[in-house]
Amino acid sequence: MTLHPCAREKEVAELLRLGHWPDASSNELRAHVNGCRMCSDFVLVTQTFQAARERSLPSRPFQSPGVLWWRAQLRRQNAAVERMNKPILGAQIFALSITALLAVGFVVFQAAHGVGWLSWFTDFSQSRASYVEGLHVLTSAASGWGLDLLVPGLAALAVLSGVVLYLASDRQ
């Protein structure tokens, strides 16, 4: 089985494409097609398929192009909104992760340095006779840890990190 196309196949194809076959073709070309297996196959198959194409009619009218156009617009908008929400979601996850990490870090730190805060309860129960004294103990214990500055500071850092990450990823 040879794969080399017939030299006249293009000529035949062009006549078929223009709808000039066989009326506008020469006797010599018609004789060639009758004798050439490749060209006769080409003519037979092309005419059959083109006739089938013309006769392919849907059972119901096609959807209006306007409806399809608006459906596509809606899908594009939804995709664009989804793309823009991705950085927001990323920033939220990042901020949550930082907060969780800080909480875990705090717990680990306290565990490593002994449960020193339990002594505060002891001090507090001893001094609960005087409410003012209790408050004094509480304040001194907290300032000892430095938590009144540390926790809000780290929280602010976590929130700011989220905002910075959001702004950075939004510009990409």
Partner: peptide, 28 residues
């Protein structure tokens, strides 16, 4: 921003004409 980025590659009229010329072939 979604409206700005959601512009179709062809407008409604151009699409309508393209659809008229290609729908039958594609369906077949």
């Amino acid at each position: 921003d979604a409206t700005r980025t959601a512009e179709a590659p062809m407008d409604s009229d151009a699409f309508g004409q393209f659809y008229e010329r290609s729908a039958h072939s594609l369906w077949a």
